[in-house]
Amino acid sequence: MDRPARRTASRRVLTAAAVVGVLVALAVAGLVRSAGTDGPVTDGERAQAVAASLRCPTCQGLSVADSGSPLAKSMRDIIDEQVAAGKSSEEIKGYFVDRYGDWVLLAPRAEGGGWVVWAVPGAAVLVGLLVVSSLVRRRPDPDTGAADELEATGPGATQAPGRGSQTLRWVAVGGVLAASLGVLIATNLDVRGEGELATGNVTPLGASTAQQQTPPEDAGQTQDQDAESAIAAMEELQAAVEANPDDVATRLALASAAFQGGRLDVTRTQAEAALDREPRNVDALMLRGLAAESKKDTEATSALRSFLRLAPEDHPAVPLVRGLLGEGS
């Protein structure tokens, strides 16, 4: 190759590299913008995602989101309500797991033995690549290989590079493949930004805020408290509950704050969530009863009755509840 030709060639390479570079940058920008347009997850989308992850009990293999059966419709209503009440996706799934068992989850949990099913695909790819890379080697001498099988190979085999560099290339190919699969699976996993999946147990807010709260038995009496500050407390407590969904005391504090703030719906879901964990918790029963008293729902009445049955006689709220139920003390 003479000099000018080489110069032209290198200029061509440079131009090509520039074009590809710009295109890659634009494509990445496109992907970023695409990810951005997903925006914050709306309640509807979150409810849809939860419904799609649950198995419809009366159908065969369809999700709650896909099924037209009446029971799936009821389950979608429940999901919508719980999403609206601020329950996390994991909590809502937990609600159904409590009733239907792990069977109801369409994707098994990666805990206990369940991780096996998640590890299998990656393991299969890795084992396969290892086997394949063992097949790549410098061509054997013609007289050591069985020559009768060689007629199919084309000419030009002499250019084969040494074994070391080939292995390196295979390792590189395998690495790139594994990495991109990993990224894909991860993005696939969180593509709709289900934040609580990733961050569920990270925020260490729970314990400290939970202790400062007023005991829930005050809820019925301290109506004078400023509703605005109750709402501010609610937000903090909401975070604490999400961080630590099994902490019944925090939930009850949130329920109580919500009650003061006039958010009876939150009180109800939180009291119910607390009852799911501790069915005989008298404070939870009372809050559950108070939360819906105005709507005349019978569950509330039964919660209040259970409260009276279970609460110690000297519980400060007993007279109030008796009054609400129309029973003399």
């Binding site: 799609a52 992850s53 198995r55 293999g61 999700s63 068992g101 792990d102 069977w103 109801v104 989850l105 369409l106 994707a107 098994p108 369940g114 099913v117 998640w118 695909p121 991109s180 699969l181 894909l184 699976i185 696939n188 996993l189």
Partner: peptide, 15 residues
Amino acid sequence: RVSVGAPYFNRMVVP
């Protein structure tokens, strides 16, 4: 009893 359904398969097969 556990289930392995569309969410699992989609996540694994798509990549």
